[in-house]
Each structure stands twice: as C-alpha cells, then as structure tokens.
Computed example of a mutant assay.
Amino acid sequence: MLPMKLSAYALTKQISLPTSRIQDILHDRRQVTVDTSVRLERFSGISDRFF
C-alpha cells in the first residue's frame, strides 16, 4: 500500500470493506477471503491469485 500512497482506511472506503478486515489482514490476524481478493483485484488491477 505504500507504493500507492494509500492508507488502510482509504482502501476500505474505495472497495467497501470494514477497516478492521484490512487491518487484520495487514497484521496477519486474518486470511484474505475470496471476496476480499476479488475486490482488491478490481481496485488494483493485480490478479486475484496474487492475494
């Protein structure tokens, strides 16, 4: 997220997810679900398999 100069809060607003979900993923307290992966793919253009 640093290369994109994007905070977790800003990302969650862009992809309509709870901030706590992204924070948990960033701190290894949660795995990336299929839904989150697809949303991240749509936002970033990076394949969902990456996530």
Rank of each mutant, 00 (worst) to 15 (best):
Y9C: 04
I46C: 02
Q14Y: 13
R39K: 13
I22V: 07
S7N: 08
H27L: 15
V38H: 06
L40T: 02
I46N: 03
I22E: 01
S16H: 13
G45N: 06
Q14T: 04
I46V: 15
E41S: 10
Q31R: 05
D24V: 02
R29M: 08
M1D: 14
S7K: 14
M4L: 15
F43Y: 13
L11A: 06
L17F: 05
R42K: 15
D28R: 07
V32W: 00
R30Q: 10
A8V: 08
V38S: 04
S47M: 02
Q23E: 08
L40I: 05
Q14S: 12
K13E: 11
P3K: 14
L26A: 10
F50E: 10
R21F: 04
I25R: 02
V34S: 09
R21M: 05
S20A: 08
D48S: 10
I15G: 04
H27V: 14
D28N: 10
R21W: 06
L17K: 03
R39F: 00
D28T: 05
L17W: 03
D24Y: 11
F43H: 07
Q14D: 10
P18L: 12
Q14L: 15
L11S: 09
G45F: 09
F51G: 09
R42L: 11
S20Y: 02
R42P: 02
D28G: 01
M4R: 15
R30T: 01
R39H: 01
D28Y: 05
Q14M: 12
F51H: 06
L6H: 05
L2M: 11
L6P: 02
F51Q: 06
T19P: 05
S16V: 03
P3C: 10
T12G: 02
K5S: 09
G45R: 08
S7T: 15
L2Y: 13
L26C: 09
R30W: 01
I15S: 11
D28L: 10
I46S: 01
H27I: 14
R42N: 12
R21H: 06
T36F: 00
G45I: 04
E41V: 02
P3W: 13
S47E: 11
R49K: 09
L11K: 08
L40P: 03
T19L: 06
T36K: 01
D24F: 04
I25W: 00
Y9V: 10
L26H: 00
L17G: 02
E41F: 06
L17H: 03
K5P: 07
S44Y: 07
P18Y: 13
I22L: 12
G45E: 09
